[in-house]
Design a protein around this nucleic acid. Structure first.
Length: 286
DNA sequence: AGATCGCCCTGCTTGC
DNA sequence: TGCAAGCAGGGCGATC
C-alpha cells in the first residue's frame, strides 16, 4: 500500500518517463476513478488534450502533474491499491485499468492508472499561487519536505487534545504518514500509540520526527530499487515490507528489541501493532 | 469548531 | 468445498 516513500518512487518515475510529453488523449474506463473531477470523465479528458506535462510534484501521499501554460494540474492519489504505470501502448490492458493517457509522440508508451479497490483517482484542479492544486491546500507539508516546520508541529501536538497516532495520521498536521509508518516510528520511539500529545516534550517530538524520517528514508532507499525502464513502480508486494518492518504485521512475533511478543489491537477500524513492554500504555490523564 | 465515526471498494484469507 | 464474514485502510463528509 503506497505511503510517502512509494509515492515518491512513482513521482521520480513520472519525472523520467512522462514529464515534457504532450498529452494526445485520455480515456476514462471507470467513473469512480475521476470522482473528484466534478465535471466528469468527458470533461477530464477534454481538458488534458494537447497540453504538455511539467515537472511532477508531491506532498505527502498526493502527487500531481502540472499542465504547462494552464495554471492547472492533474492530481493523483493512489489510495490503497492504485498504480501509475508507464506501459507499451500494445500491452494488454490490466484487469483493473481505470484511466489511460496517450501522448503525442512516438515513444510507444502510455500512462495507465490501475486501481483494484478504486480508493484512489485522478482529477484536474487549479493551482494555488504556490503551485499546489487548490483542493490539497489543507494538506500539511510532509516530514521529508525541507520546509516542514518541526517547532510548529510540536506546538500543534501540545495544543491538541488527542493521542499521538491520530495526530501522526492527521494529514493537516503532518502528511505522508500512514498506518504502517506510524506504527514503525512509534515502535522505534518506544511510544505507545495512545499517548496524549498534549504532554509531549520537545525532545520526545524531535525523536519521533527523527524516526519518522529515518524509516521513510530507509523505505525510499529500498523502494527505489524496484523501478525499471518500463514501469513506474508501485508494487506493494516488493521486498521492503517483508524484510524491514519492525512492528507492522508482527503480531505474536518477538519484539526485535526485547523479544516480548508483539500485540495487535483494533484501532479506528484498522490495527495497531506494538510491543507491550517497550511501548507502555500511558496512564490516563485528567 | 474540533474530534470522531461511517462509508467507499474488491480480492485474499479465514472459519464454519 | 462452498459460502460468508473478516480484513486491508486513506480521505472525506456527516455528525456530535
Amino acid at each position: 500500500m503506497p505511503e510517502l516513500p512509494e509515492v515518491e518512487v512513482v513521482r521520480r518515475g513520472l519525472a523520467r518517463w512522462v514529464a515534457q510529453r504532450i498529452i494526445a488523449d485520455a480515456e476514462v474506463l471507470h467513473p469512480r476513478a475521476v470522482r473528484r473531477h466534478i465535471a466528469g470523465g468527458d470533461d477530464f479528458t477534454y481538458r488534458l488534450k494537447g497540453h504538455r506535462v511539467g515537472t511532477p510534484s508531491r506532498r505527502g501521499k498526493y502527487l500531481w502533474l502540472p499542465l504547462e501554460d494552464t495554471g492547472q494540474s492533474v492530481l493523483a492519489h493512489l489510495g490503497m491499491s492504485g498504480q501509475l504505470l508507464v506501459q507499451p501502448q500494445d500491452a494488454v490492458d490490466e484487469k483493473h485499468l481505470r484511466i489511460r493517457v496517450r501522448f503525442a509522440d512516438d515513444l510507444g508508451t502510455e500512462l495507465r492508472f490501475v486501481d483494484q479497490r478504486t480508493f484512489g483517482g485522478l482529477s484536474l484542479h487549479d493551482n494555488t499561487p504556490d503551485g499546489l492544486p487548490d483542493v490539497i491546500a489543507h494538506i500539511a507539508r510532509d516530514p521529508l519536505d525541507p520546509l516542514f516546520d518541526d517547532e510548529a508541529f510540536h506546538q500543534a501536538l501540545r495544543r491538541k487534545r488527542t493521542t499521538i497516532k491520530r495526530a501522526l495520521l492527521d494529514q493537516s498536521l503532518i502528511s505522508g504518514v500512514g498506518n504502517i509508518y506510524a506504527d514503525e516510528a512509534l515502535w522505534r520511539s518506544r511510544v505507545h500509540y495512545e499517548r496524549p500529545t498534549a504532554g509531549f516534550t520537545r525532545p520526545r517530538t524531535a525523536e519521533l520526527l527523527g524516526h519518522v524520517r529515518d524509516v521513510m528514508n530507509a523505505a525510499l532507499a529500498v523502494g527505489g530499487t524496484s523501478f525499471d525502464s518500463l514501469y513506474v513502480n508501485v508494487n506493494g508486494e516488493s521486498g521492503y515490507f517483508d524484510r524491514s518492518l519492525d512492528a507492522y504485521g508482527r503480531e505474536g512475533l518477538p519484539c526485535k528489541r526485547c523479544a516480548t511478543p508483539m500485540l495487535r489491537r483494533p484501532w479506528m477500524n484498522r490495527s495497531s501493532y506494538f510491543c507491550p513492554k517497550c511501548q507502555r500504555v500511558p496512564r490516563a490523564v485528567s
